[in-house]
Design a protein around this nucleic acid. Structure first.
Lengths: 202, 202
DNA sequence: TGATTTTTGTATCGTTTGGTACATATCTAT
DNA sequence: ATAGATATGTACCAAACGATACAAAAATCA
C-alpha cells in the first residue's frame, strides 16, 4: 500500500533522458506545427521508438501539451523579465526588441510556436486551439497588468487604455512572428519594433 | 490542326460550375488551411467527385493555387481601393479599418488565408510557402508605393521611411489576422487599428 | 448511325497517419 | 534464485491521405 523507501521504482529503468527528449520534441513541433509533426518525425528527433513515447508522455496531444508548457514558461518568463523596466514605454520597448531578436535567432525555428500552431491546427484539434488561445491571453495579461501599474504610477499617456495598448502590443508581436516565419531578417523586425513604439509619446 | 468553328468542344460537357466550385474550395482552404483541407472535404464542399476535381484543376496544389489567385486578387483589389484616400494617413487608416471589419465578418472564416496557410503548411510544401510569401510581399509593395507617392507629395512625416512604414502596416495586418483567428471581436480589432494609427502624427 | 472525345461515378491503389500487441530485456523486492 | 514490474524493439493495425484505372454516360463530328 505505502510506497517503499527505495529511491528508484522497480522495473527496467528508462534508457533515455525524458527531459532532453521533450526539448527535441519541442523543436520539432516548433518547426513543423502540431499536425505537421508526425510521430515518425518526433521519434526520430527524440531518438526513441513509438512505444517509449506513448509510455512516457501519453499520446501526441499530451506530448505537445508538455512541450507547450515548457515553451510558454520560458516565453512568459522572458516577457516578465523584460517588463521589469522602470517605465512603461521602456518595458514595452524591451519586449518588442526581444521579440525581434528572438524571432530571428538562427538556432531556433522562426516565429512563435503559439502563433504558428494556432493557425496551423485545423478545427479538429479544437482543444489544442483553445489551449493556445489561453496561453496567448496569458501573455497579453502580463503586458496589461504592467500597463495598469503604469497608469497607477502616472506613467501612461492621458487617455491611454492599458487593455487596448496591451492588445496592440501582442498584435504587433504576433505580426512580427508571421514576418519572421516568412523569412524577415532581424534588422527588418527591429525596424518594425521601433516603428510600433512610435504610438507611444517619447 | 486549327480549332473548329464550333462553340462547344466535343465530348461530354461538364456537369458543374467550375467557377462556383472554385469558390467553395476557397472557403474550405480558408477555413482549414492547405494541408488541413482533405480531398474528401474539398470534393464534398464542391459537390463533385475526385476524378472531376483532378480533370478540372490538376491536383490539390494546383487547385489551391487557383483558389489563392482568386483570394489574392480580391484582397489586393480592396487594398488598392482603400489606398486611394487622398492622404497617406487616411489611406492606411482605411486599410486597417477594412481589415478589422473583414477579419471579423461572420460569413467568412477568421483571419487572412495567406497568413494562416503560410504558418500552417509544413516545410514539405515549400513551393506553397514561397508563393504565399510572394503574395504577401505584393500587398506590402502596394502600401509602400502609396507611401512613396505620399513622400513625393510631402504627405509623410519628416524622417519617415515608406519601406519601414509599409512593413509596419502589414505586420499589424498580419497580427490582426492572428487575433481574428483566435476569436477577437470586431470591436477589439478596431481598437487595435486605431491604436496602430497613433504612430502617425495626426 | 458510328467514331471520337471528354466527363462522371465507382472502386481501388500505395503511402502515411496515430496508435498498439507482444515478446524480450532489465531493473527492484523478496 | 525467483517473482513482479517497467521499458524496449519489432512488427503490425485500422483509418485517412492524395491520386488513378476503368467502364459507363453524354456530348460533337463525320
Amino acid at each position: 500500500m505505502k510506497p517503499r523507501e527505495s529511491a528508484c521504482s522497480p522495473g527496467r529503468p528508462r534508457c533515455f533522458d525524458a527531459d532532453a527528449a521533450l526539448d527535441r520534441a519541442l523543436q520539432v513541433f516548433w518547426r513543423k506545427s502540431y499536425e505537421g509533426a508526425s510521430l515518425t518525425d518526433l521519434t526520430a528527433a527524440m531518438g526513441i521508438n513509438r512505444p517509449s513515447l506513448y509510455a512516457a508522455y501519453g499520446n501526441k496531444e499530451a506530448l505537445f501539451r508538455k512541450a507547450l508548457d515548457r515553451y510558454a514558461e520560458a516565453a512568459d518568463s522572458a516577457v516578465r523579465c523584460a517588463l521589469e523596466e522602470p517605465t512603461a514605454r521602456g518595458a514595452v520597448a524591451r519586449v518588442l526588441r526581444m521579440a525581434a531578436d528572438g524571432s530571428a535567432c538562427p538556432s531556433n525555428p522562426r516565429g512563435c510556436l503559439m502563433v504558428s500552431a494556432a493557425l496551423a491546427c485545423g478545427e479538429e484539434a479544437e482543444t489544442i486551439r483553445q489551449e493556445l488561445a489561453a496561453r496567448r491571453a496569458g501573455t497579453e495579461m502580463l503586458v496589461r497588468q504592467r500597463l495598469e501599474r503604469a497608469r497607477a504610477e502616472g506613467d501612461l499617456p492621458a487617455g491611454a487604455s492599458p487593455a487596448d495598448l496591451a492588445r496592440y502590443v501582442v498584435t504587433v508581436l504576433h505580426g512580427m512572428s508571421v514576418q519572421a516565419a516568412g523569412g524577415a531578417t532581424r534588422a527588418e523586425l527591429q525596424r518594425v519594433a521601433e516603428t510600433a513604439l512610435r504610438v507611444w509619446p517619447a
